[in-house]
Nucleic acid binder design. Structure first.
Lengths: 240, 240
DNA sequence: ACCTGAACACCGTTCAAGT
DNA sequence: ACCTGAACACCGTTCAAGT
């Protein structure tokens, strides 16, 4: 605000005398998310972040207590975007709503592989994580279960989402991320290794290798989620 | 083997002239697991491992390509212990067998918080992870489903297990691990924070805070697993 | 074939000093 | 109140040299 000043006419819009950098928690987290998206959790160093913000390393510590808290807060800030996606969710079927919320979470996490590991870790720190847990729980509360069942079912849905999403998210091992190898080539290579196994010793692997080779992460997630939700619906029906 | 020599009588059994350290992949992984159990993934540095093995840092690199592979292989070596626990599993109900296998996995992972993040990451490297995936898949194959359903259901079970186990495993935040704070105190503190929330804005949190405060990780896991397995049983029945 | 210490190129975090 | 550069105490990994 002290910077505000009317531009004098004709002067090119160059930054004038180099002032010292000024941040905010928002800009720090935004910078962190940019780096995370570009190069993953490994790439987010305090030095890299300070460089991007155009300041010194120590200034980051004014806003966060350390790297771990930075990761937690950066992840939580991204999670806030989910609420826009699920603003319209609210049908007369709680199970349908749960599916919609879970799929939105999956979509958000899956193309941010770094996100899965840092979401829903510290609800005291992570406001959006807490609100999402609350949102899911409110749908489960509509199913007519006991408090204990509500608690367990909500935790199961959340656990399944972040568990499998984190798992799928970390799948590509560096070479895929960097673009040296396509996802198809990567899957084909593993499928090849699996086909080389003894089919007598590995009947299941042999049985599903074709499915694995052409599988789609989103469909796989949706199928597993539907199994869980089917079990939940059953519990709900027998409770009435 | 060149070391072998008959002890001359009366001489104390001290190590004689200091010979240079000699390792094996097994001893390297065993040392790594010891450190991981004592101080978690963060505590496993190459230097700490080398010191425990009584050798130099660089010798570790003869057996593993780097720290990541060390973690992967250490995790997989622990996973091998599960097969003893599930040796007797094999009833006429595949769902019961799946529950037994999943619970064994949970029990193994839950008191080794570091394990969850490194299990089932690279089946080309991790033999036991592959065999466990196979073992679970073989049970699912008995349910009369299509290959696609078998693939999806097996992945869902595995995803749920490692997802929630990893989640529960990482729950205690340093202070609990070090023994400064008991689990009860930790849960009570969070419960206190939750009770301080506005009950109108957080009806679900308010509804389950009592359950959360006295919850048991194993029961919570079992309850979620049962929902998933109930959905799977339903799918199996409608397939026949 | 396997082990070694030293060196390299990084890290996260702290601190005394600035504005 | 917020930012800075330099310093500290670590890291993982490599390498030339040993046995």
């Amino acid at each position: 605000m002290a910077e505000q000043r009317t531009e004098s006419a004709g002067r090119p819009r160059q930054p004038r005398t180099r002032t010292r950098a000024s941040h905010s928690l928002e800009s720090v987290l935004a910078g962190a998310v940019e780096i995370l998206d570009e190069s993953g959790a490994q790439g987010l160093t305090i030095r890299a972040l300070a460089a991007r913000l155009g300041g010194g390393v120590a200034s980051v510590y004014w806003y966060v207590s350390g790297r771990e808290e930075l990761l937690d807060l950066a992840a939580d800030s991204v999670l806030g975007g989910i609420f826009d996606q699920i603003a319209d969710v609210g049908s007369d079927d709680p199970i349908d709503d749960l599916r919609a919320i879970a799929m939105a979470m999956f979509d958000t996490i899956v193309d941010r592989p770094w996100l899965g590991a840092y979401v829903l870790r510290d609800t005291g720190l992570q406001v959006h994580s807490l609100q999402l847990y609350e949102r899911i729980g409110e749908e489960v509360m509509r199913l007519g279960l006991t408090p204990r069942q509500v608690f367990h079912a909500t935790s199961a849905v959340v656990g399944f989402v972040i568990g499998t999403a984190a798992d799928l998210g970390q799948e590509p091992p560096a070479a895929v991320v960097s673009g040296e190898v396509t996802r198809e080539e990567y899957l084909a290579r593993i499928a090849g290794e699996w086909r080389a196994l003894d089919a007598t010793a590995y009947p299941f692997i042999n049985h599903i290798v074709g499915e694995f080779e052409r599988h789609n992460d989103r469909d796989q997630f949706a199928a597993g989620l539907d199994l869980l939700l089917a079990g939940l619906r059953l519990q709900s029906e027998s409770a009435r």
